[in-house]
Design a protein around this nucleic acid. Structure first.
Lengths: 191, 191
DNA sequence: CCGTATTTATAGCGACCGCTACAGAAAAGG
DNA sequence: CCTTTTCTGTAGCGGTCGCTATAAATACGG
């Protein structure tokens, strides 16, 4: 998993995997089938700790959920003991046409996560917790882009503190806060 | 260039390059040396239209410059006629250890762009256009992350309009605006 | 301690990688 | 038209890719 995480799907050779595991190719193929199946198992294993899904399920509001996602992204993407950034974002960026399905599989995971973010936002809009004119898809796209940017910055050397500050800045784009925090006592409405 | 742009450095083979150019390997090697030199020339060619450097040089304020960078990123990353996203961000993500220098070369370009953004921000802070407590490096990191996230989202299928909305949201994190726009008539200062 | 079943290591398959020697075709000079 | 020079196409170099047939080594039942 660490090999795929660091170098990506195609750039990780069977030889590097077998040496990392301390086994020989026939054992690897007996245990996992082929390289693609092994990678699928790696992705499954990686996703067992899906802090995004966990935050979306556990936090009471979309705002709290996304703030937590950004906070945990800052921590996880820079945590020691494994490569920086997110495997789902970075493991199948540069693939030849013969591995397009691997790239599409990871893209599907990304799209599902984005849709899950949009769902909790839409839920809070429906519940009146967010302005009616909030576009859940666009807001989800913005925070998905933020998280991906944080992952890339982590790979480029950003620290946890750096990314936490980025997360704070990203939360300034959250809707409703602006008027809520600064408009003061409610004045006369428009009309 | 389009081949490298779409598939990345290592995933692009000499065979695919020669067929795309309509030439044979010996002609390619006579003209460009080896694959690495060809890629360097591709990156140079790609950077001839560096909308970030242009915006930073031409716009009068850091805010205008970065708003323009985000706007042009939305347009360029989704423009027809070439692959989506940015070559500097996406062409050397998954490389083996033998091509680490290619990845580092692109990383250097990214770091330089980030430093250039930080420079214009620091300049405006020094000029009093931005709050004194503004951290140019962190703000530059945030917008660099945003642009990279936009590039990735473009590769995942986001449209120009999508990315323009993301750009608008990102500009909500710009410092100073908050108080300027919403605090109303200046009240008594602190103390 | 012996025979059997399972796992392991050795060696190598065909295919493709980046790259190049060499020969045949095209262009330039007389 | 012939020679010389430049260029292009064919073929193939050593090496690595993902993957596997086969044999040696191990664990198990009696």
């Amino acid at each position: 998993m660490l090999e795929f995480w660091r170098h990506g799907y195609e750039a990780t050779s069977i030889a590097s995997l077998t040496t990392a595991m301390g086994i020989r190719p026939p054992s690897l193929y007996a245990a996992f089938g082929d390289k693609r199946h092994l990678f699928e198992e790696v992705v499954q294993r990686y996703r067992r700790y899906d802090f995004t899904a966990r935050a979306l399920a556990e936090e009471p509001t979309a705002r709290a959920a996304i703030a937590r996602v950004l906070r945990e992204a800052a921590a996880n993407y820079t945590a020691p003991g494994h490569p920086p950034g997110c495997l789902v974002f970075s493991a199948a960026v540069n693939v030849g046409p013969e591995s397009a399905d691997v790239r599409e599989a990871l893209r599907g995971i990304r799209e599902a996560a984005k849709a899950a973010i949009a769902a909790v936002i839409a839920s809070d809009v429906a519940a009146g917790l967010l302005p009616e004119d909030t576009d859940p898809d666009i807001l989800a796209l913005f925070y998905a882009a933020t998280v991906q940017g944080m992952s890339t910055q982590a790979r480029d050397g950003a620290t946890r503190r750096d990314l936490e500050r980025v997360a704070e800045l990203a939360m300034l784009a959250w809707p409703g806060k602006r008027e809520d925090a600064a408009e003061g006592p409610p004045g006369p409405g428009p009309g």
